[in-house]
Design a protein around this nucleic acid. Structure first.
Lengths: 158, 158
DNA sequence: ACCGCAAATGCAACAGAGTTGCACAAATGG
DNA sequence: CCATTTGTGCAACTCTGTTGCATTTGCGGT
């Protein structure tokens, strides 16, 4: 798998020494009383601009030299998820993907997994109401994953 | 995680030299014109008797000395999924789980993932109808995964 | 402006799940 | 019973994610 398309935005990670703090990511960090570190700001900014959930590898590639240590990246992603600023998800290839949890938007929509290229798409369609479950079971969240072929892979084949 | 409960049935894997072929698993294999090998019969039989999807590790543990080689087990599980005799799924801990695909039963029901113990439960509730998606996208299958705490983990805590 | 401490980072080594290549054994078909 | 095709076993490897520990750094207090 060749690291997916990843249409990363042009001006994702900047503001290191010149501009103090212009990024909304930094603001979000401050808002919850967390430390504002370059790594966190860079990663969160990237996730916020990304159109689809990103894997550790995606983030590392997208940030390039600014990605820093592999482990730090894992820890930052993990921390973001723990802090509620991002959501975690495991795709069909056993890879964990992260998405910015903006204003709760990512909590409540559908994901389409392309079984061909592995890309994950976010759909605007509202999810159906979850069914009720047996007593004793507490529902935390429901996730409807659609699997199939995306338009790109679909047109390329028969 | 201590390898899940795994209530493996008493008479799962037998019939090696004495009884010719009594297992329905073997019959299922023959039915699709595939080779009937001990490994396949043992694994498929186990999966068919299992109440929940099993991971590679679960199967290896359950079969004990009869499990054979790790790699063979991976290949058998993979083959079963490819052949349509089992279905694959990835749980919250990035572990692939397999379930026997009997008569199409496992195709169309819900899974509840316990975020505490990682156990996967099969619910009888019928899944909601999938929404329509953008043009160019071809839906292969929809999977509704419910996440939360199971009754066991739920009662143990506050 | 400076100091100190807790928290974050970097480095290195490790762990578990799954894969690949190749030689050998076994299941079918003739 | 033999030949061919397919599955199995072994060893080594890749990839994703973790853990421990020393060092640096954000940030609040002085």
């Amino acid at each position: 798998m060749a690291t997916a398309p990843s249409p990363l935005p042009p001006s994702a990670a900047d503001a290191d020494g010149a501009a103090p703090v212009a990024s909304p990511a930094a603001a979000a960090l401050r808002a919850i009383g967390a430390r504002v570190t370059p790594a966190r700001v860079r990663v969160l900014t990237l996730l916020r601009e990304a159109p689809t959930p990103m894997s550790h590898h995606d983030v590392e590639t997208a940030l390039g030299p600014d990605a820093g240590d592999r482990v730090t990246l894992y820890r930052v992603l993990d921390w973001l998820a723990e802090a509620g600023l991002a959501t975690r998800g495991v795709d069909a290839t056993r890879v964990t993907r992260y998405a910015a949890a903006r204003d709760g938007k990512h909590q409540n929509h559908l994901h389409f997994h392309c079984d061909d290229c592995g890309q994950v798409y976010c759909l605007d369609t509202p999810p159906p109401p979850p069914p009720e479950l047996p007593a004793g079971f507490q529902l935390q969240r429901a996730e409807l994953d659609l699997h199939g072929q995306c338009d790109r892979c679909n047109s390329g084949k028969a």
